[in-house]
Write a protein that binds this DNA or RNA. Structure first.
Lengths: 342, 342
DNA sequence: TTGAAAGCGCTAACAT
DNA sequence: ATGTTAGCGCTTTCAA
């Protein structure tokens, strides 16, 4: 695998340019006084030697690594992948790297991750916490003065910025729409209620039913991890009951896809046999026949805003925490049918 | 945002346990000789103070940060998202973090990324290089002795491990199947030929045509960045010609989805008007009606193998580079129709 | 305008 | 079994 060549340090550059390390540093980072000629000589020397500053040493000196941690539940969820993409772009402009770490929706793993990342002296965190309640690790991080921005999922007790959407409203609107289309037995496919969005979307579901005087039936609610495979199973369970729902509301796009696949495998057609609305839009939602009605989130705005909030904190902004909540939008397509009561 | 509390260092722990820093380090990292009693006292002190080793200082000392860089073109591509997920899991077991950095399929940006990440003294890289040719940055990284594992895309001149699939064979088999189904005007929707997989998949397309004595027509090849939006445009261009193709082969799942959407928007039905095969399987491929015929990759094996290769290198394995190429599999579903020559 | 020197937190060779 | 000390590469205060 080739010969290792020694790494060029500031000392080498300084020697090459025949100045002290201090002067070399000044010339390369353009601060303090340096003679024009000297500066040039140092820069040339650095160039010639292929000098590349050791960011670890700089970090040890300054106390922080120019890295932001993004802690999420699942990078395979297109929603988070999009956010990650946007965050990385914004941070790149600030010469920071993004370290994406997955909790796999496991609170213990999320805590371990924090333990490990905190030791890295990372500058700040953007987090979609796995649990709405169990957040000692986040509190400690905030208490130690490390900026945290919550994304997609808030934590009430935490004094930090957050960017979420109107989960309750979006879910309520969706279920409302199903009810107004004549449905009474409306299934809910959600992930664990430990998760903030799940709680709020459940609340929206519950509130919509209540507003129409429909009693909530636990047998119509199916809980599963948010993957296509698990959602398939959960959907099959839901629709294998003696009195299955006539409509289904799913809380994210992976689950919507799982539900679609499951219903098809059971020979149930959408929207003839089952009406469907999913939270979170997705690429193929308009390709399927019928097209899927969804609650869309303003996904393009979430990542950039969160990045900006974090950057503001990094540059010392001391305002009280901002908690932004974006509205959602019901996009009516063709997966809901009118149901005439029997 | 709360009071900053001072960070606990080894020195504090040592003082608390009334031992030297060396002893404290030994007790905490369990190496060298430490008295049982002393060790216990140190561990208790660390616990009490909430000591968390400074990984940056450790890295400066040891010369490396326990971080692996994953440089890819687009985290929003489900293929890469899956790989990232698997890599992270494997590396976590080795107490390493994964830093995902996106080149956005831009070679210049990829180079800048390397420049920046090399300065971080990252332990190794897993890379899906943007260009099959322009790889001075990779060569330099390898030359400096930093382990690199190529994934999805190889670079011939580079002395390092790689994990790819049989792109030429997979593409050839797909196009073969189209030809055997009676198609002669077969469109190709691919990303830029700078990209390794694109080159190989194009070769497969070309070879299949050639084997059947069909002349390649440039007007049937459409190049676009690999996003759903760009693929939609490119597909529309392809099928707006006076003599459009009767079949289409797309080189990845995002493009397949774009093609699907575009064809639908043009009122062309699959497979009646256009037959379709996509490289890379995807969740909804079996939901659409008809289900989409695809060339599937053994995606579950790629990430773990690459991770293992890198880990082996990190632990000093000196074998000559391994270049693994997985076979692909044509999964015949319903998006190809027999075409009777007119 | 430049240089000398201290020190960030940690590890490990060496000394005791 | 434990302590002393040097030094990883860099920045920055202080002195010249």
């Amino acid at each position: 695998m080739g010969l290792k060549r020694p790494v060029v340090t500031l000392k080498d550059v300084a020697a090459e340019a025949r100045v002290s390390r201090a002067t070399a540093a000044r010339a390369l980072n353009s601060y303090g006084y340096v003679g024009d000629e000297t500066a040039l000589r140092v820069q040339e020397a650095a160039e010639r030697l292929g000098y590349r500053g050791n960011r670890v040493a700089q970090a040890l000196r300054r106390g922080q690594l120019p890295i932001i941690g993004f802690v999420l539940g699942d990078i395979q969820n297109p929603f988070f992948a999009r956010i990650a993409h946007d965050l990385e772009g914004e941070l790149r402009k600030r010469r920071h790297n993004l370290l994406i770490a997955s909790s796999e929706e496991d609170t213990a793993q999320e805590k371990a991750l924090f333990e490990s990342l905190r030791g890295l002296s990372i500058r700040g965190f953007i987090v979609a916490p796995t649990s709405a309640d169990d957040n000692a690790h986040l509190e400690e991080t905030v208490r130690e003065g490390v900026p945290v921005v919550l994304i997609d999922r808030a934590v009430k007790s935490l004094e930090c910025d957050s960017v979420v959407v109107d989960n309750e409203g979006g879910a309520r609107q969706a279920v409302d729409y199903l009810i107004n289309s004549g449905h009474r037995r409306i299934g809910l496919l959600q992930d664990e209620t430990r998760i903030f969005t799940s709680q709020e979307r459940l609340a929206g579901y519950r509130n919509a039913l209540e507003a129409h005087g429909i009693e909530l039936e636990n047998s119509l609610i199916s809980v599963s991890p948010s993957t296509v495979e698990h959602a398939i199973e959960a959907t099959i369970r839901l629709f294998s009951q003696r009195k299955p729902p006539t409509a289904l509301f799913t809380v994210d796009s992976l689950m919507t896809q799982g539900a679609l696949l499951a219903l098809r495998s059971m020979g149930l057609s959408v929207p003839k046999d089952v009406s469907l609305i999913g939270f979170d839009d997705f690429n193929l939602a308009t390709f399927t026949d019928p097209q899927i009605t969804v609650v869309a989130q303003p996904i393009a705005e979430i990542g950039p805003l969160a990045a900006q909030m974090l950057i503001d904190r990094l540059s010392g902004k001391k305002d009280p925490p901002r908690n932004v909540r974006f509205p959602t939008r019901l996009i009516i397509r063709g997966s809901v049918s009118r149901r005439v009561e029997v």
